[in-house]
Design a protein around this nucleic acid. Structure first.
Ligand SMILES: [Mn+2]
Ligand SMILES: [Mn+2]
Ligand SMILES: [Zn+2]
Ligand SMILES: [Zn+2]
Lengths: 145, 145
DNA sequence: CCTGTATTGATACTGAGTATCATCAAGGGG
DNA sequence: CCCCTTGATGATACTCAGTATCAATACAGG
């Protein structure tokens, strides 16, 4: 069990990327996070942990991780771009508007809906994105808003 | 039939906004558009038509029109923010990746999917967004990519 | 008309994301 | 295990979307 043995290191290699210190550090920052986060959040995290990671590298690493589908980019209703850690299989996210945590929702029912829309509109649909916003069970219990 | 008689003027009044010259001009620019467009597109349109509309006003008007649901904001896969003209009822958009035109898709099937996800995750879902990308019938006919 | 107030637009500013480029380090071949 | 090639890094400077400010203006309702 080497520090090099991580599913993400493997994915990096498989895709022809180097498993660098900076990338491992960013992945580490991400796993310590709960809920969604922005690039700026990671910059702050790195700062406050005294890590010497360039801002550009954080943006670049997020791009790489998005391509590997280790994270997914969200477009929050506020217009902000955020990310969540993620497994690679296609699925969707239910995002808590209060605490930012998210749960996975599988694609099951949606696939049929998409096929329906293809038939109705005549488009060939290649890609879709579903984002769901609401309150998570914890935040619901704590009193709604 | 007065220049003041437009469904959007009515909607503005109803919501307590004034039907100003600048707003009418922006609405006009939008109706002359085909497919989705960015705020910057409208700034250019205004420029090239010699309209004297401040950049800030274009952003502000797009916000107002979004609130009135006369336009809807899209988050393109590229990360750009774009808009499409829209009727106010809740629905979704199928967007052509080649020409940018979009068709409406109603919410029908999706509603059940959302309810399912609520049950599976325990979240209370207040808002959802579905964006579909692909090729429109015209672009399909013209040869796919 | 007149007037209170929402709106405008010029200007300056913030902050996300990116281009550049000299320096560095990953990692495969010897 | 060490080199060398090449991809990656990070400091810096830059672009550009979106926003705050505020004096001047134009709606709308009376
Ligand atoms: Mn996920
Ligand atoms: Mn529409
Ligand atoms: Zn929550
Ligand atoms: Zn098309």
């Amino acid at each position: 069990m080497d520090a090099t043995d991580s599913p993400i290191d493997a994915a990096l290699g498989r895709a022809g990327y180097r498993a660098t210190g900076a990338r491992r550090a960013v992945v580490d920052l991400i796993t310590r996070r709960d809920g969604h986060f922005t690039a700026a959040d990671l910059v702050d995290d790195a700062q406050s942990r005294g890590l010497r990671i360039g801002r550009a590298t954080i943006f670049r690493t997020l791009d790489v991780l998005t391509e590997l589908r280790a994270v997914e980019r969200l477009d929050l209703p506020t217009g902000d771009h955020a990310y969540v850690a993620c497994e690679p299989a296609h699925h969707h996210h239910v995002i808590c508007s209060r605490c930012g945590r998210s749960s996975d929702a599988d694609d099951a029912g949606l696939r049929a809906v998409v096929r329906d829309i293809e038939r109705q509109t005549g488009y060939r649909i290649d890609e879709h994105r579903l984002e769901l916003f609401g309150l998570c069970p914890d935040c619901l219990a704590r009193g709604s808003t």
